[in-house]
Structure formats: C-alpha cells, structure tokens
C-alpha cells in the first residue's frame, strides 16, 4: 500500500477519521452498487435480467468517473453567457463529463445489441434461461459427437 506522504498516519488509523470516512463513503457506496450489478449478472439465469445487472454495473462505473471530477464548492462547467469568467468561481472538471456522456450513448447502443442477441437466442432455442440453454447446448454437442465424432477421430 502506497502511503501518499511520510507524515500521514497508516491506513488502519485512517478508517475512524471522519474526514476520511465522509471523503470515501461515495466510493464505497458505488462499489456496493457495482457489486449488486455483478451479483445479478453472476447469480441470475435470465438473460434480460443479466443485461439489467450489467447496466447497473456500468452506471456504477460512470458514477466513479463523475465523482472523480467533482471539486468541493465547484459548480457545473458552464461559463456565464457573456463569457466574463469570474476567476474566483471554482468549476468541476469537465473531462470526465465528456467521457461519460459519450459512454452512456454507446452503452445504450451496445445494450440494444445484447437485447437483439437475446431475441435471436429465444428464436433459436425457445428459452432465455441460462440453465436450459446449457442443457440444450450439451445435447447438441453430444449429437454432433455421435454423428461426426468417428470421422474426426474422437470428439468433434
């Protein structure tokens, strides 16, 4: 663990420092959110629900980026209309906003690609539950083995 500078106390004593807790609570809560999304992806068998879980995970990552750009006491990075910028006003960092703005739109485009795949899977296998899909897949492989296995010299 890299401690930032020599004068700072070790991490274990940081935990009960209220400044530290308030300054990091955001990150911890977004990790809780991210892990909820990951849990849905790993534990639930329905493909639509998996996509919703992936979306939650994705949004948690967006939040991390945006929270990195936030400056205490800052405001949205939009200047007054007459462009007379007051040097005492603090603006939040606009760069993460740009990255995440485009990422959201790309995210919906890729999500819809996943949903389209689900529709096709339903059409081909008549189910969108992972367990049933795996069973069907196993049967298909077995059938392939029976048919082509000898010609391929063992497993197809």
């Amino acid at each position: 663990m890299a401690v930032k500078s020599g004068t700072e106390p070790a991490v274990a004593s940081h935990i009960f420092d209220w400044d530290f807790v308030f300054g990091h609570a955001n990150y911890w809560l977004f990790i809780v959110l991210m892990m909820t999304g990951l849990y849905i992806v790993v534990a639930r068998g329905n493909l639509v629900k998996k996509i919703v879980g992936l979306n939650i995970f994705q949004v948690a990552v967006f939040m991390l980026y945006i929270s990195i750009g936030k400056v205490t006491g800052g405001t949205a990075p939009i200047f007054p209309l007459d462009m007379k910028v007051d040097p005492t006003v603090v603006y939040s960092n606009p760069l993460p906003h740009v990255l995440i703005l485009t990422a959201i739109v790309v995210g919906i485009a890729t999500t819809s690609l996943g949903l389209a795949l689900i529709v096709r899977i339903k059409e081909a296998f008549d189910t969108i539950e992972e367990d049933e899909l795996l069973l069907i897949e196993r049967k298909l492989t077995a059938a392939d083995n029976r048919e082509h296995g000898p010609a391929m010299g063992g497993r197809a």
Partner: peptide, 21 residues
C-alpha cells in the same frame, strides 16, 4: 462478489477524498 468488493474497497483507501481540489 464479496471478495471482489473487498478488493475494490481496499483499492479506494489510497484514493484522494471526494471533491479534493
């Protein structure tokens, strides 16, 4: 999920405070 989350929380301990200019 719990192990992954714990690893990520460990990673945040080095990060600067939220809103640190």
């Amino acid at each position: 999920v719990a192990v992954t989350g714990a690893a990520l929380v460990y990673g945040t301990l080095d990060m600067p405070n939220f809103g640190d200019p």
